[in-house]
Design a binder for these strands. Sequence first.
DNA 1: GCGACTGTACGCAAACTATCGTACAGTTGA
DNA 2: TCAACTGTACGATAGTTTGCGTACAGTCGC
Lengths: 109, 109
Amino acid sequence: MRTLTHPDRAQLRLEGVLDALANPVRLRIVQRLAEGEELTCGTVLPDIPASSATHHWRVLRESGVLFARRQGRVIVHSLRRDDLDARFPGLLDAVLAAMASESRSRNLG
Amino acid sequence: MRTLTHPDRAQLRLEGVLDALANPVRLRIVQRLAEGEELTCGTVLPDIPASSATHHWRVLRESGVLFARRQGRVIVHSLRRDDLDARFPGLLDAVLAAMASESRSRNLG
DNA sequence: GCGACTGTACGCAAACTATCGTACAGTTGA
DNA sequence: TCAACTGTACGATAGTTTGCGTACAGTCGC
């Protein structure tokens, strides 16, 4: 169990963030985090195996999309909203809004 | 030489667009298009082989990021700004602004 | 210490992506 | 019709990503 490394704000890369977001599992995680939830690794998509989930958490963490802090035996994740907004103003909001609008149109059929 | 197919506005998918944008070559193309240029396939990055370029143009076209129209023997590409703005408000602007800010900070050192 | 719990590390296989060379198709102007 | 030009189709390959099983490490409560 290594220490949880994060890029700092200045190290965030647009391409890395876009890459992290261009995946349905990770988009779903971001959406949940954006709802204000602080998620542990096991909290999202209980049907996907832990080892697969770990991979996605890592991609999100290493790209700088979220922050992970160890809290006892769980790892609590939160969106790095401030950092993302500072480096890429409007990007996160646009992605979240787009997800919301996509799920709306899905529900309409 | 097949006909150039495009998804229509309602078919645009966030994940597909993010995926198309999560690549340095394609980001560069989008940046150039956003500057108002209308580009043909050979106009960007002359050092990359035509067959590689074709691949990237296709990804951008099929994800709905740009529109390609045949004009004599060249294919002219333009950003689908209106469609992107309609489906994913703020997304394209945020990405373009982020690119601009990244190239600014690169120039500073 | 021990067992339950949470998540990682490692390694593997399948699927996907990027890059490229070669051959070729459509358009244009001579 | 012919050659030049522009871009595609196809196929190969290397590298990457995804998904997963298994083994294990750190923390907690008892």
